[in-house]
Design a protein around this nucleic acid. Structure first.
Lengths: 215, 215
DNA sequence: TCCCTAAACTAGCGGTGTAAGTTTTCATTC
DNA sequence: GAATGAAAACTTACACCGCTAGTTTAGGGA
């Protein structure tokens, strides 16, 4: 097949299809040839639109991150905005769990991640947090969200209770985690986020705005 | 070479060498042939000792996790034990950052991870936390530690300031993060951990031990 | 002493990312 | 309207990957 009348591929179509394949079959199952086949094309043709496979994955990661809503920082108090953002962030990642391992490494140069960091940092500084503190808070929340989306605590527990009871006395119920994985994950996230925000509010009252907290 | 007088390989030697190669050159650079070459052996010989490459990586992950100290739960109050554990956990991971991406996925069946979870869960329940809460707390801390070890917020920022200033007004100083990556990571971790523990202490006082907190 | 297993080997399969060079079409310019 | 050059597909091929199969020999137990 020579050059077609109208291009068969566009960057958007490639990214879209790659994300669908990753969602369906996992990160490891995405090869350039399989992706090309899904697009009705031969493998190397992708390289007319992207320089490397990683560039494709970066674009996929960017669209996933792009779904995160940071609008709260423009309209709500910093704590509510942080909470909204964290949940939106988590939803964006858990919507595409297979992408998360790739996404979690080196987000500094992807536009959507930069825009997100910018919004969070700006919102916190505007609320009165010192710049260094704002950086730390944004990073800490990011750690928590990424960690929760990535390696679920419950994932990997198998159904056989005998396997655990013998060697790990306190985990006798661990096999039951497999049944409730999603609720455990959400519960742990909710608890951790609340605790984090509670602790941050205390520090805010102590160091940023002592008047309001005392009055 | 036929079967040698004394075996050239042992599981321990393989795991040790694999960890050293991963530390030196990254996860992606570890191939069975390269690992075998470092051991003075041909690639497939590894399969006399491990069934798959993933089994080797699981063993590597297990030794990394095995360095985590959960001793605090036997001797200190739950909050101090959590703090000690979290820092020890973080130190164990950051000592081998290249292993973390593998480690972060599916730790449920590795012995060291199970022992760790068992110690944490047991310690929290012993301190009076309801079992479901103990599960959530252990998971939340794990999320935070894994997230912080995995994708450093600062990693990936490049040194060119112009790149950021134009599009992300609040990140004008972002390029400086690259210089201070380690201190930013540690600061964010310390802040987040303190906030988490502060929030948990408040919940403990409210729901588990209201008498002591009121008296 | 005999035999089975262990632990190395060699050869090779199907798959990977990607580089190189080819062919044809489209859009532009003289 | 012809010439030109880039664009976008192609085919071929390379080096590497994880892993399987079958072979060879040394060592330990009956």
């Amino acid at each position: 097949m020579p050059r077609p009348r109208r291009p068969l591929l566009t960057r958007d179509r490639i990214v879209e299809t790659a994300l669908a394949l990753i969602d369906a079959d996992g990160l490891g199952a995405l090869s350039t040839r399989r992706l090309a086949a899904a697009l009705g094309v031969q493998g190397p043709s992708l390289y007319n639109h992207f320089a490397t496979k990683d560039e494709i994955l970066d674009a996929v990661a960017d669209t996933v991150t792009g779904a995160v809503d940071t609008g709260g920082f423009a309209s709500r108090d910093w704590a509510s905005a942080l909470r909204d953002w964290a949940w939106s962030y988590r939803r964006a990642l858990t919507a595409h769990p297979n992408v998360v391992p790739y996404l979690a490494q080196g987000p500094g140069r992807r536009p959507a991640a930069l825009a997100m960091a910018d919004a969070v940092y700006g919102g916190l500084v505007r609320a009165g947090w010192p710049p260094a503190r704002a950086t730390h808070i944004g990073a800490a929340l990011r750690y928590f969200v990424a960690g929760s989306a990535l390696g679920s605590f419950a994932r990997g527990f198998v159904e056989d209770p005998e396997l655990y009871a013998a060697h790990y006395p306190h985990l006798r119920q661990a096999h039951r985690l497999a049944e409730h994985q999603q609720s455990v994950d959400e519960g742990a996230f909710a608890l951790g986020l609340d605790a984090l925000l509670h602790g941050l509010a205390a520090e805010y009252a102590r160091t940023v705005d002592p008047v309001e907290s005392n009055g």
